[in-house]
């Protein structure tokens, strides 16, 4: 019992401080393209030229990541951001 509770505490300590931008991207892929966690995470390719930054920089009306087309919003063009 003690072991189990210790394992549980250990897992709690590993609770993540994940990259916020990547989290936002995955949430958008799940919402806009109906993908599950695994598929959305697979699309979250890293690096400056990766899908996450392509979506974040939002320089065109749509961003195509794999078979998913995302719409992004330019916060600098919206009152309230």
């Amino acid at each position: 019992m003690k072991l189990v509770s210790l394992i549980a505490i250990g897992m709690l300590f590993s609770a993540s401080a994940m990259a916020g931008t990547k989290d936002d991207f995955i949430a958008e892929v799940k919402k806009q393209c109906g993908k599950d966690d695994g598929a959305a995470a697979a699309l979250a390719t890293g690096g400056r030229q990766g899908n996450v930054m392509k979506w974040k920089t939002c320089t065109s009306a749509t961003v195509t990541v794999g078979d998913c087309t995302l719409t992004c919003t330019d916060s600098s063009s919206k009152i309230g951001g």
Partner: peptide, 19 residues
């Protein structure tokens, strides 16, 4: 457990810094 939890947190923090 503590060490595993701490290392995982560091990796993810580095990734956040990269972004």
């Amino acid at each position: 457990m503590m060490t595993q939890g701490h290392a995982q947190s560091l990796e993810e923090r580095v990734e956040a810094l990269e972004y």
